[in-house]
Design a protein around this nucleic acid. Structure first.
Length: 267
DNA sequence: CAATGATCCTGTCCGC
DNA sequence: TGCGGACAGGATCATT
């Protein structure tokens, strides 16, 4: 599922494709996939691509004429580049048409993904409240420790809360807690300074490793050129029966999600 | 305010 | 071979 490393990888590909191009139009094939800001100019396109950035799991694409796109892939969304117009794919929910006849197709079987077209000035208004970037300087052991003091929910739920830290999802949270040696169901308040240190260090480490190999392709996730990421080959606990040391892995449900952990390696 | 559970949705997989 | 049900889970909304 697209988490920070997958979104970053897709964004990098999208920026390459959009570099020097104009968007001519955004076509919607499924109700609710494309959301239009009411405060938008009535004829926003064509607009020149300026820059792309990422905030948590959101892609933000800036264009001329104060137009921006907020793209969220949710669980099964893909942005696939085509050099020429072709038939609408069964799961194609929207299409971003470019000035050279190419297009980015938004393919999303489960239809949870969204493309929001906004006036750039309204960016803050259209983004939810998001915590610090996990790879940023504000995501520190002190910050996390302070947040854990206020909560009785399991630490995994806290890490999945985008208003606490923006970009972690189920897979990397399972993995980083395994690396940190902390059980996902541990009550947040019980996390020690030392454990907060380990969680922060391994969060940053695992995200950087995953970005370096193009993310994790477990089911639908693909890069813009339809290539798979490679990090699924390095997962140690997610959907495993045995941990790397050969211990039995347990799977419990936390916040409605499968949570894999090793009772021997994680305390 | 915190925490939990339902909801959105469809493809895939498992057991019978 | 077919069918029903469980499952996958990011974010939002309603409820406790």
């Amino acid at each position: 599922m697209p988490e920070l490393p997958e979104v970053q990888t897709v964004l990098n590909g999208v920026c390459q494709v959009l570099n020097g191009r104009q968007v001519l139009s955004i076509v919607s094939y499924y109700p609710g996939t494309v959301i239009w800001d009411e405060a938008l100019d009535s004829h926003p396109f064509p607009a020149d691509f300026i820059s792309g950035m990422r905030r948590g799991k959101y892609m933000i694409l800036h264009f001329s004429k104060d137009v921006s796109l907020i793209v969220h892939l949710r669980m099964t969304g893909k942005l696939v580049f085509e050099t020429a117009l072709i038939d609408i794919h069964r799961h194609e929910r929207a299409r971003i048409e470019l000035d050279d006849g190419s297009a980015l197709r938004f393919i999303d079987p489960r239809t949870f993904g969204k493309i929001t077209v906004i006036n750039t000035e309204n960016l803050e208004k259209f983004l939810p409240q998001l915590g610090p970037e996990p790879l940023g300087k504000d995501f520190t052991p002190q910050y996390l420790y302070q947040k854990t003091r206020l909560r009785s929910a399991p630490i995994k739920n806290l890490l999945l809360d985008q208003s606490i830290v923006a970009g972690l999802g189920n897979i990397y949270t399972c993995e980083l807690l395994y690396r940190a040696g902390v059980r996902p169901q541990r009550i947040s308040k019980s996390i020690t300074h030392k454990e907060a240190n380990l969680i922060i260090r391994h969060s940053k480490e695992i995200l950087m490793e995953a970005i370096a190999v193009g993310g994790t392709s477990i089911s639908d996730y693909r890069q813009v050129d339809d290539k798979r990421g490679e990090f699924q080959n390095f997962l140690k606990i997610y959907q495993k029966k045995l941990c790397p040391l050969g211990h039995d892995v347990e799977n419990i449900r936390l916040a409605g999600r499968s949570s894999f952990f090793c009772p021997k390696c994680q305390k």
